[in-house]
Amino acid sequence: MDLKRLARDGVFTAVAVVIFVIELQIPELLPIPGVKLGLANTVTLAALFLLGPADAGAILACRILLGGVLGGNLMAVVYSAAGGAAAYLTALFLRGHVTERQIWVVSVFSALAHSLGQMAAAVAVTATPSLVLYLPAMLAASVVTGLLTGFAAQFAVARLGKIRRR
């Protein structure tokens, strides 16, 4: 394996894990399960646009596993893996339909997909269909958080052009 690529992806993963762990320290703003800013997603998005799908997917998977271990909440791995996979696939699909000035659009739709995936996992794990009553609130919050993290990712991509995969 290309050592430069390994080192670069390792740095992305480290940044994502640190952002994730710092975000855990911020108290939940809304008493609605599953609503959070999701800042670590900026790294996945930036990686997708700068490094490509394979690297972004690997960085995402490592971040979810390491984040679950460091956060001490292994159940969270199940919910965030379901949400993360849905968000990743959505971003992958939309990537070809936007310019690098529209990364925030990809982010909003992948935040929406994250909520849907997470909700599906939560309903399956707790066997409680009435959890979907929270889905509209989660989706509304996802639009807002997706915009914020999306613009963060877009600014990062604009400034990190040099490490783009050649």
Binding site: P33, G34, N73, M75, A76, Y79, A122, V125, T126, T128, S130, L131, L133, Y134
Partner: peptide, 8 residues
């Protein structure tokens, strides 16, 4: 009708 949930 909205339940109280503790996902963890």
């Amino acid at each position: 009708a909205a339940p109280i949930v503790c996902l963890p």
